[in-house]
């Protein structure tokens, strides 16, 4: 218990001390995971909607792949990206390995299936009869899709929150493809691993609290957004 309190105090001290190193790590963490989430959202939300509303040959296979991806061990995602980006790999010429870009790619691979899969089930949760009813009221396909998106908004937000949760706290993949290089690819999780290995438990715990605090704040914001979406004023 004392250790935890000390950790909490340490976290506050770290942040308030103006330790540039810590802020750098926090900002990189946010930048990498934020970019990955943005990409996953831009690709994954429309894909999930299409998968839920349309039927096409091979759909079952695609769905199975996505469900598999939702349970993909992050370290395996990291390994795949590593092999793709390594110097002898097919994308080696990009020179992205051990840069934040590689970390973004790995995190997209981890979060995209979650965003697609959960968006899909959010949209599928809206009864198909509603689509017919809207059509009967004179809606075009596009107008129907818009209304369905609105109806499924809370579930889609959950998809994004889950996607973000899966990457901000992930360590295996970013360690593999980022390399935990100081001032370049070191994020909160990999910094915690490092400090622990060094035996600097106070520092590790303090960083752990920073990570938890960050996740807490972001989830609280998402919850407020959810409230605003579900109960719009006026």
């Amino acid at each position: 218990m004392d250790d935890l309190l000390a950790g909490l105090a340490g976290a506050l001290r770290l942040l308030l001390s103006g330790d540039a190193g810590v802020w750098e790590i926090v900002l990189l963490t946010l930048r990498v995971s934020g970019t990955a989430l943005l990409i996953s959202a831009v690709l994954g939300v429309p894909a999930g909607v299409v998968l839920a509303l349309r039927s096409f040959p091979g759909q079952r296979l695609v769905t199975t792949v996505i469900y598999t991806g939702m349970g993909l061990p992050p370290v395996v995602a990291g390994l795949v990206v590593y092999l793709l980006l390594s110097r002898s790999g097919p994308l080696g010429d990009l020179g992205w390995l051990f840069t934040p870009r590689a970390m973004v790619v790995a995190q997209v691979l981890i979060s995209l299936p979650l965003v697609v899969g959960l968006t899909m089930s959010a949209v599928e949760g809206i009864t198909p009869e509603l689509r017919l009813q809207l059509r009967a009221l004179g809606a075009t396909e596009r107008q129907i899709a818009q209304a369905i998106l609105w109806e499924a908004r809370a579930g889609m937000l959950v998809a994004l929150v889950a996607g973000f949760g899966s990457i901000i706290s992930e360590v295996g993949a970013v360690l593999l493809v980022g390399g935990n290089i100081e001032r370049s690819t070191r994020v909160l999780t990999t910094a915690i691993v490092l400090e622990t290995r060094k035996g600097a438990f106070d520092q590790a715990l303090a960083l752990g609290f920073v990570l938890v605090g960050l996740t807490f704040v972001l989830n609280a914001l998402a919850l407020r957004l959810r409230g605003a979406l579900l109960h719009p004023a006026g």
């Binding site: 509603l130 017919l132 009813q133 009967a136 109806e151 579900l230």
Partner: peptide, 19 residues
Amino acid sequence: PLDVRRQVTLVFQRPLLLD
């Protein structure tokens, strides 16, 4: 086409409203 379709409307057995 839409303009013809919009001449006809159906109230379903189960009332389904938008949120």
